[in-house]
Nucleic acid binder design. Sequence first.
DNA 1: ACAGAACCTTGACCCAAATCAAAGAGACCG
DNA 2: CGGTCTCTTTGATTTGGGTCAAGGTTCTGT
Lengths: 248, 248
Amino acid sequence: MPAEDIQQLSLHCSDCPIRHRAVCARCESTELDRLEEIKYYRSFEAGQTVIWSGDKMDFVASVVSGIATLTQTLEDGRTQMVGLLLPSDFVGRPGRDSAAYNITATTDIVMCCFRKKPFEELMLRTPHIGQRLLEMTLDELDAAREWMLLLGRKTAREKIASLLAIVARRDAAIQLRVAQGQLAFDLPLTREAMADYLGLTLETVSRQISALKRDGVIELEGKRHVTVPDFDRLLCEAGDDSDGGFLV
Amino acid sequence: MPAEDIQQLSLHCSDCPIRHRAVCARCESTELDRLEEIKYYRSFEAGQTVIWSGDKMDFVASVVSGIATLTQTLEDGRTQMVGLLLPSDFVGRPGRDSAAYNITATTDIVMCCFRKKPFEELMLRTPHIGQRLLEMTLDELDAAREWMLLLGRKTAREKIASLLAIVARRDAAIQLRVAQGQLAFDLPLTREAMADYLGLTLETVSRQISALKRDGVIELEGKRHVTVPDFDRLLCEAGDDSDGGFLV
DNA sequence: ACAGAACCTTGACCCAAATCAAAGAGACCG
DNA sequence: CGGTCTCTTTGATTTGGGTCAAGGTTCTGT
């Protein structure tokens, strides 16, 4: 989302640190002011579950700060992460009143919620909101499909490299650090969460990270801080030149 | 989509056998008549490529008859199917002018196309179309995420059983055959396409189908015709009680 | 400063699925 | 009818990643 859009949007939502990506920034309707009337905030601690799959969900929300995951599980406990919620991401589905996934906070998190009913009414009156939501949903669909390629066809090493590349890019975008040459960032996920994301076991994740380190593709400081000396090398390890992916 | 919607919709699109699911059936606006003005048909033979990923795509379309696949590939040829287009499915993305995936006809296929520009203009004037598209896109996203669970965490046998269950259900829905007890249908995919769908090799697909046959979960007649004596048994083999999935 | 917990790494071993290889079964065609 | 092509099955072997197990590192709370 271009910077000027964020700014313009913030005119409508001035006390809130979030960029409501659900809302069309180009729409100048005063309807958007009504978002202020129906919104409220909720906080969760790291590890807390925001909502369980199947539970009633009478709100939609944007992430203000922190990180949450969307996961699905089989009866026997096998878990697959199907999405990651980062600041400014939108969650919740107009027209459906129960959650489709478990949402879990992996860090302390603040969400900006809108009660679903009034939000839907606002959508009806303000087509631009729906259009923006459609755009966002299509982006998520593309990201999910790219992840399908990763889950179905990539090797463990490629999966790890892809994840690192995506996190690096996302981090660079957030920090607005222009990334020439060396990149450094903190992994926002535990080894286990990475495993659930990539369809691997945590042991394999650990082993492959060690292998990438041994081969000089990345450097590690502590468990979480990663330095990438040669981003192109990492991309090459990722098995494709994909420039997008899940974290969008 | 409920039957009455299809019927009501067909008022607006009477000569076309397709149910335009992209269009809100409940909308009585005469705007919908303009769809007639901007639509045209294209046919493809089995095996033909409709469009390559990255190509310019200046239309959106609904599938009238036949089956097509959406696939992504890595440079070395590894292929992952990320979607299956069945009659009445919508393809194409307002707001993006190149295709994100390879679209290939797996049977002879007829598509009902709308030039993108006028379709987008129509969307602007008719919010219900956008809303319906949003609904459909959210359904596709759910399906893609369910597929992520399958790709990341299910065994080969569970993958095959899941695919069979989904095809069986979809077939039953299309045929409007009420499915008490025994189900029978034709597989719409080659072993190789199934493999690309499930993230397996074609040999593994063949072996697992043979195993399910040997264990009495399914019966096979020829290579493609499948009979399911006990649908619950098949669901159980699929590893979850999922009632939806990719084919929607 | 110490105990405990949570998280991470590494090794040894195993197995499900990939790979390599060969042969069967239809479909189509001259 | 036999030949060829495409699709499918089955067998033998290999291997990537899972499983089980044992320690190592931080971090937190007392």
